[in-house]
């Protein structure tokens, strides 16, 4: 529970306590944040596919898979951008900010999961709308938390623009990979969505 609260605090942009600022502890928090995100994403997946048992069970691993692999694919580009730009931020701070953003975004998904499930069971049009809407909201929240978490950990007087470059690269990469991974994992929703066919369908 202490770790959960610490991750939540870090995701909210609060300063890292002195006892949690060691390298191993920071990496442990990153790993915990990602593992917790899998559980949150699974809960939302279950809700989004709750109309059919098969889809719900498949979503238990599909949604966490899409989110985790998008993080894994985006991280190297972000780290390279961080190195090349000479951003005035520690690598573990960037990793904490990123995992904090993912944690916050998936937490939004998890808290909205009951609402999504309820509307999917009781409404023909509001369920899909809430499903896509909650995913979009989670993306926005995750992005805000990542940006805020990184900027707040900058040393005083450090240029913010240079620190934002790796953040933008990471987010761009994650969005692009999310789009195609979601198409590969489709169907996640019972309905066909504009994202079911990936970039080819969106470009049409």
């Amino acid at each position: 529970m202490t770790t959960f609260v610490t991750i939540l605090d870090i995701a909210c942009g609060r300063p890292i306590p002195a006892e949690d600022s060691g390298r191993a502890r920071r990496l442990q928090l990153v790993v915990f944040a990602l593992l917790a995100s899998l559980a949150f994403a699974g809960a939302w997946g279950l809700a989004a596919g709750s109309q059919a048992a098969g889809l719900a069970i498949a979503n238990l691993y599909k949604v966490p898979m899409v989110i985790l692999l998008s993080c894994v694919f985006a991280a190297p580009a972000g780290l390279l951008a961080w190195r090349l730009s000479g951003a005035p931020v520690r690598g573990t701070d960037l990793a904490l900010g990123f995992s904090g953003g993912v944690f916050g975004g998936t937490l939004v998904l998890a808290v909205l999961a009951p609402l999504v499930a309820l509307y999917y069971q009781s409404s023909a049009w509001a369920g899909p709308l809430l499903g896509i809407g909650s995913a979009a909201l989670a993306l926005v929240v995750g992005t805000v938390m990542f940006v805020r978490g990184t900027i707040r950990r900058l040393p005083p007087g450090a240029p913010k623009l240079a620190a934002l470059l790796p953040v933008v690269v990471t987010l761009g990469m994650q969005l692009l990979t999310l789009l195609q991974l979601a198409a590969i994992a489709a169907p996640i929703f019972p309905e066909r969505t504009p994202f079911s066919g990936g970039i080819d369908h969106l470009a049409r």
Partner: peptide, 10 residues
Amino acid sequence: AASVERADAL
């Protein structure tokens, strides 16, 4: 490693 670090810091 994290618990050792944490204990040291405390």
